[in-house]
Design a protein around this nucleic acid. Sequence first.
DNA 1: ACTAAATTTAACCATACGGTTAGATTTTGT
DNA 2: ACAAAATCTAACCGTATGGTTAAATTTAGT
Lengths: 207, 207
Amino acid sequence: MQNEEQSSTEVKIFEAAREVFQSKGLEGARMQEIADKAEINKSMLHYYYRSKEKLFEKVYQLSIIKLIPQIAGLLNEDLPLEAKLRNFAIKYLELIKLNPDIPLFVLHEMNKNPGRLKTFMLNEVGKKIQPFLNQIQEEREKGNTVDLPVEQIMVNIISLLIFPFIGRQVLQVILNIDDSEFDQFIEERIKYLPDYLVKITLDKNSL
Amino acid sequence: MQNEEQSSTEVKIFEAAREVFQSKGLEGARMQEIADKAEINKSMLHYYYRSKEKLFEKVYQLSIIKLIPQIAGLLNEDLPLEAKLRNFAIKYLELIKLNPDIPLFVLHEMNKNPGRLKTFMLNEVGKKIQPFLNQIQEEREKGNTVDLPVEQIMVNIISLLIFPFIGRQVLQVILNIDDSEFDQFIEERIKYLPDYLVKITLDKNSL
DNA sequence: ACTAAATTTAACCATACGGTTAGATTTTGT
DNA sequence: ACAAAATCTAACCGTATGGTTAAATTTAGT
């Protein structure tokens, strides 16, 4: 057994695998490419992770597991809805900015194989969002939100927060902007979106 | 040469390929699976389309080409902005409802290989959206829109229209709804979204 | 210092998968 | 009716790729 600096092989493999799987998908990824990126012998992949499936599964699940508690945390702070929503938007954007490849990765893999992760996520995510939905519902009944079903409100929020990261390549093409212009675009978005989300969901005048 | 009923082999292959490529992606798709789905001998795939690459390219490009003129058409009708936006939302939702797998398919493939389609799409899409952006810009300068850069407005619109189709699997999990409930969810969304989009982008009171 | 375990390497294996081929069958044109 | 072309089948091929193995090297424990 080794530690500190040395123990990096297993981690290096994981990091390389994460990069490759997230950009190429399960079947698009090549074990050799992962090994090259990690700068280790291909056999090491199997030494530490048995198989491509197993390695993928680790990357896939950790991609999600890592995010869930952070997101769930934001939704369960004890704050009035408006503050909570604004806070959620800010922190969620920060989070996703640090992990911009995860959403499309997860979406594509779930689409290919809905069964792989479903039950696992059900308990982890679904339940944690429920209190937030309830809180929206309460405010809605008091007439403090836009007059839409809470699920629609939730999906509107998620859509606006997440889509630009998923659709980056297409957006860059149709808006004809390069990487750095896109980054600017995101920065701009981070500035106004929290307030905008509050407005379009909590301001009853907006609909 | 054959026609009518007979000429179906080539078409059957294409349709099968479309289904498989769109749900599994280029490398996730198996030629045998496509052949099975089309109920033909695997050699037929190569007889009609030479290679997996070529077949994929056809599916990929046609997935997009088919949609571009329809979408572009919606954006270039001679209508006041509000009517155009509402019309766009309605028709776009209809269109995407008929082709719900295309957005995620295209996004994933563009992400894996941004070069494959970029220049081709640049000319086709980018230019066609420009007049719409200009029209928004004009109204914005008159103070008739929300005070955001036109690109942000455009992305907000696209996000709200398209994300539910891309994120279907994840949404079903976190909202804990089945296929038919999701379809209901979409129907509900189709009803309110056009008006909602107009409100949140054209009503200056909304921000 | 010595041994045993952990880690790494290079060379090899098995096979899934994309692709080919030769020939059968069907269709088309005259 | 016949030949030529188009369409289709089954059987096969080559190789990329995931995976294995045996032996070398490094590390850890005493």
